[in-house]
């Protein structure tokens, strides 16, 4: 019976060495251990200098995304036993600048997220005294899937367009825009068209579909973007053919 497994980590400590390097660690092969448990074992018992992000350990905070054997994965929800006999290669998520070891710089993503106006833009402001908006289960179902994104960024790592074109808003940001576009309480689609039709918007997507395969929450960003392309194309022609005022409506 195999008792341990080798974890190969791509490391980077800018003060020590200007280029990344690989380091191997031998960790116990415990049933139930996720890849993240192996990393915390390394941190606690073998090497206190290893840096990585993690928090909830239940696949919902989105902190612990990394490349595991070349595939983007949530390390808390990916188990050692899936990779027998090893070794398991762990690298920071693709297509992001790497700050240190497995820690990536996500500031650009945070900017893109805000850029798509991911908040409810109602047709008219309502006060609390007006009570709740009615929304039927069917209306909720129309956008529910797109609310499930945990911003783990696996889809950005999976998407070659993100890697080739740094201006591309990316799967999660466009899916989030669509989450509000399809919400029956929202009337902000026109404002979001300005962003999504622009350079870096939905039409930069070339339909590779890898984002949906990588998504641990089944958000299906591919679908969200394809559906936008249909809506966006209509809007594009409307803006081209109709006088300004009419198109805005």
């Amino acid at each position: 019976m195999q008792k341990t497994i080798t974890i190969q980590v791509k490391r980077y400590i800018p003060e020590k060495q200007p280029t990344p390097f690989y380091q191997d660690y031998e960790v116990p092969l415990e049933t139930k251990w996720g890849v993240l448990d192996a990393l915390t074992y390394i941190k606690d018992e073998l090497d206190g200098t290893l840096a990585f992000r993690w928090s909830c350990h239940m696949g919902v905070c989105g902190s612990c995304g990394m490349m595991v054997n070349g595939q983007p994965a949530l390390t808390c929800a990916t188990f050692l036993e899936e990779y027998l006999p090893g070794p398991i290669c762990i690298e920071p998520l693709d297509h992001f600048p790497v700050i240190r070891d497995l820690v990536i710089d996500t500031d650009a993503f945070m900017g893109k997220l805000k850029y798509v106006k991911p908040w409810l833009i109602p047709a008219e402001e309502r006060s609390v005294d007006d009570g709740e908006n009615r929304q039927t289960p069917a209306e909720l179902a129309a956008f529910k899937q797109y609310t499930l994104c945990i911003n783990c960024l696996l889809c950005y790592s999976a998407c070659p367009v993100v890697g080739l074109n740094e201006d591309f808003l990316g799967p999660a940001a466009i899916a989030l825009a669509q989450r509000y576009n399809y919400d029956s309480r929202d009337a902000g689609q026109t404002q979001r068209h300005d962003v999504l039709l622009d350079h870096g918007g939905a039409f930069d997507c070339t339909l590779i579909g890898e984002c949906s395969r990588a998504c641990p929450k089944h958000v299906d960003p591919t679908g969200a973007i394809q559906r936008y392309k249909a809506d966006g194309a209509m809007e594009f022609w409307k803006r081209l053919l109709l006088p300004r005022g009419a198109a805005k409506r």
Binding site: W119, L120, P122, R126, V128, E132, N133, R134, Q135, T136, P137, E139, L140, F143, K144, T147, Y180, D183, R185, D186
Partner: peptide, 15 residues
Amino acid sequence: EHWGCPWSREPDGQV
């Protein structure tokens, strides 16, 4: 609710 929280709903659309 007004900020868009996707509360689960009754068939008639109430929270």
